[in-house]
């Protein structure tokens, strides 16, 4: 935890068991202050559990987590005041009115920008006297996000924040998060499956797989390092071209992941079919790193540590 001064979020060998089931193990990663980090992972891999651990809702069974320099469990009141958390399913009771939530926002003791909150809500026709039970899923999500973003927190822990939002609201949400990160040095850890959205604003990507962090990298560096080679897979490829070491199959087509510093090998590889080279999208990268599909008999998908070493 030596870098805790510059890192808003940091974990070291963090783990959590539920009875005999180990959900997280040896989770170590750090997010510098002011960064937006996408937390990706398959369903049930422990993303929400990780956010709960960071927020101090549950206790780690091993390792430590540090949020805004606070390593203690439960978190100090001052840490919680500076942390905004949105977890899937954690909602106010049905009879709650929006004005009650605005009261709650004021009560947190942070610099709550109520006029901005009211404005953001009014733009979507959400009046203070609207009851929670009368709101749609997307409206409920927008209300909670508005309250969170107007609380002026230093850290945002968000679990599927755009779930249920329309495309316009999703864009606006991520713009607001990006703006807060740029203007106020807010750190955001966003767990999501909608990778195309988060890709637009994230500085970092963190992939949770098989109970621990599989991979963490700066998104820009990653884009520079990894290329995708698309090529026609007919006739089917039965063996790798000379010099090409790793191959991954996505959705029936063949996608070649290649390291930048190995382009010489790529150039010398002899492909029978036409190839197209481009930068990998985060979604493609995620599928390649966590997917199971590969051509039988060929080497496994890209080894993560190899590409992260350059970042």
């Amino acid at each position: 935890m030596s870098e805790s001064n510059s890192n808003a979020i940091e974990t070291s060998k963090l783990g959590r068991d539920f009875g005999s089931k180990k959900v997280l193990q040896d989770v170590s990663f750090a997010i510098p202050a002011g960064n937006v980090c996408a937390l990706l992972g398959k369903n049930g891999v422990g993303k929400t559990t990780l956010l709960k651990l960071l927020m101090g809702l549950i206790q780690a069974t091993e390792g430590t987590s540090c949020l805004l320099g606070d390593q203690d469990w439960p978190r100090a009141a001052s840490t919680l005041r500076r942390t905004g958390c949105l977890l899937d399913g954690f909602e106010p009771p049905k009879a709650t009115q929006i004005r009650h939530l605005l009261d709650l926002g004021r009560a947190t003791g942070t610099e709550f920008d109520e006029s901005s909150a009211r404005k953001l809500l009014k733009e979507r026709g959400l009046e203070p006297r609207c009851r929670w039970s009368t709101l749609s899923k997307g409206q409920r999500r927008w209300v909670l996000l508005t309250l969170l973003l107007c609380r002026k927190c230093d850290v945002l822990l968000l679990d599927e924040p755009a779930d249920g939002l329309d495309p316009q609201s999703r864009i606006e949400l991520y713009q607001l998060i990006r703006q807060q990160a740029n203007d106020r040095n807010v750190t955001a850890l966003i767990a999501t499956h909608v990778i195309t959205d988060i890709e637009r604003v994230a500085d970092q990507v963190c992939i949770l797989h098989d109970k621990s962090i599989l991979f963490q990298a700066d998104l820009e560096d990653l884009r520079e390092q990894v290329q995708v080679i698309d090529f026609d897979a007919s006739p089917p490829l039965t063996q790798l071209p000379a010099g090409v070491e790793r191959l991954h199959v996505v959705n029936g087509g063949s996608v070649q992941w290649w390291l930048r510093d190995r382009t010489d090998a790529l150039e010398s590889a002899r492909f029978e079919n036409e190839i197209r080279r481009r930068k990998a999208s985060l979604e493609e990268l995620f599928i390649a790193l966590t997917g199971n599909s590969q051509i039988a008999g060929l080497p496994p998908p890209l080894v993560l540590s190899n590409i992260s070493s350059g970042s």
């Binding site: 009141a77 919680l80 958390c85 977890l87 954690f90 909602e91 106010p92 942070t110």
Partner: peptide, 17 residues
């Protein structure tokens, strides 16, 4: 339950409060 009592625990209040 997350709906209701659990919700307050995510809103930045201390356990004592």
């Amino acid at each position: 339950e997350p709906r209701g009592p659990g919700f307050l625990y995510c809103q930045g209040f201390s356990r004592d409060q």
